[in-house]
């Protein structure tokens, strides 16, 4: 035998040393007899539960814990496996308060295999619980923050609509979800007429206000599932899943009249009226992909501008396109 091994055995056979180990152990140690009555209640246990040894010894160990599903689970696992590791059970303190106790326990058997008692190691988990709760809270806050940042990255802060990239991505998602046969998507590009004049006459803050109001008008005109975005500058985009060319034209026309008749207050006594030009296209009647539909809508938007603004263009009347 190695010297270390001899020393260790010597140590185990020294009752003083065993007692010292029992006393010095920071975990509370409780043992019971075969009937569950407490036979040993260490100093650390005293510190955890607050009971004097005289109040505990020879009483059933269940007085140390709150009855409940956790207790039942402890009993059941001890019965089935003969041991449990770090089960969290509400502990009962001498002053009536409760705390979280982490309990490891094992059934002790005598040499004939009969149950001789239970030994339990108990730790006060309150501090751990507090840290865990704090972490959980912090995590929730972080998730909120990430969601908020994500929202900010995907939305235009001024109009609270989707930004260009996210709007296109959402439209692609809608197309992918609709499948090959049911693919129907209306696309409208809308551009405010003479927006620069607002900026030049009233300043950019008023310009921002106008954009926000237009965003609200657009938002109001949509149904559930429609995708509205700020495409850039004073240009807006609407993707209407399920809409054909007629439907998206009606939508753009509705926005156009709505805006034409709306007074947007810019100062306390001045209001302006904005008009919008729009080009619309639809999948599959005009294009078979999103980029093609956007290109067509863009062309038609410029046709609307050229034709005198404040109108919706939905066809290429003056353009040639032989169906090849």
């Amino acid at each position: 035998m190695t010297p270390e091994r001899i020393d260790f055995l010597a140590l185990l056979s020294d009752p003083d040393m065993l007692q010292l180990m029992l006393v010095a152990c920071p975990d509370g140690i409780v043992t019971t007899d075969a009937n569950g009555r407490v036979t040993l209640y260490s100093g650390a246990s005293e510190a955890i539960f607050g009971f004097d040894p005289i109040q505990v010894l020879d009483r059933h160990f269940s007085m140390l814990f709150v009855d409940g599903p956790e207790r039942a689970l402890l009993d059941q696992q001890l019965l089935e496996r003969g041991r449990v590791v770090d089960v969290e059970i509400p502990g009962r303190h001498q002053d009536g308060s409760q705390f979280f106790a982490a309990v490891s326990a094992a059934v002790i058997r005598d040499r004939y295999g009969d149950v001789a008692g239970i030994v339990m190691y108990i730790r006060d988990h309150t501090a751990v619980r507090q840290i865990e709760d704090a972490l959980r809270n912090r995590n929730t806050q972080l998730n909120h923050l990430v969601a908020k940042l994500d929202h900010m990255a995907r939305h235009d802060q001024l109009t609270l609509l989707l930004n260009r990239g996210s709007a296109v991505e959402a439209a692609e998602d809608a197309l992918l979800a609709s499948g090959l046969e049911g693919m129907n998507l209306g696309v409208a590009l809308l551009d405010l007429d003479h927006f620069k004049m607002v900026n030049d006459s009233y300043g950019h803050l008023v310009g921002d206000l106008v954009l926000a109001r237009v965003g609200a008008v657009l938002q109001k005109a949509t149904r559930e599932g429609d995708i509205i975005g700020r495409f850039g500058g004073e240009e807006f985009v609407a993707f209407l899943p399920g809409a054909d060319l007629d439907a998206v034209t009606r939508f753009a026309e509705r926005v156009r009249t709505e805006l034409e008749n709306a007074l947007i207050p810019v100062t306390e006594d001045i209001s302006v009226t904005m008009t919008v030009s729009a080009g619309v296209a639809a999948i599959p009647s005009c294009a078979d992909s999103l980029s093609e539909a956007l290109r067509i809508a863009d062309d038609r938007l410029y046709a609307a501008k050229r034709a005198g603004r404040n109108r919706v263009v939905h066809s290429d009347k003056n353009q040639r396109r032989s169906a090849a």
Binding site: L176, S289, L290
Partner: peptide, 18 residues
């Protein structure tokens, strides 16, 4: 930008004619 992982997605995103 988006990863296209099957023919169906290619047809939807790039267009049938392409």
């Amino acid at each position: 930008a988006r990863r296209i992982s099957n023919v169906r997605e290619a047809v939807i995103l790039l267009g049938m004619r392409t």
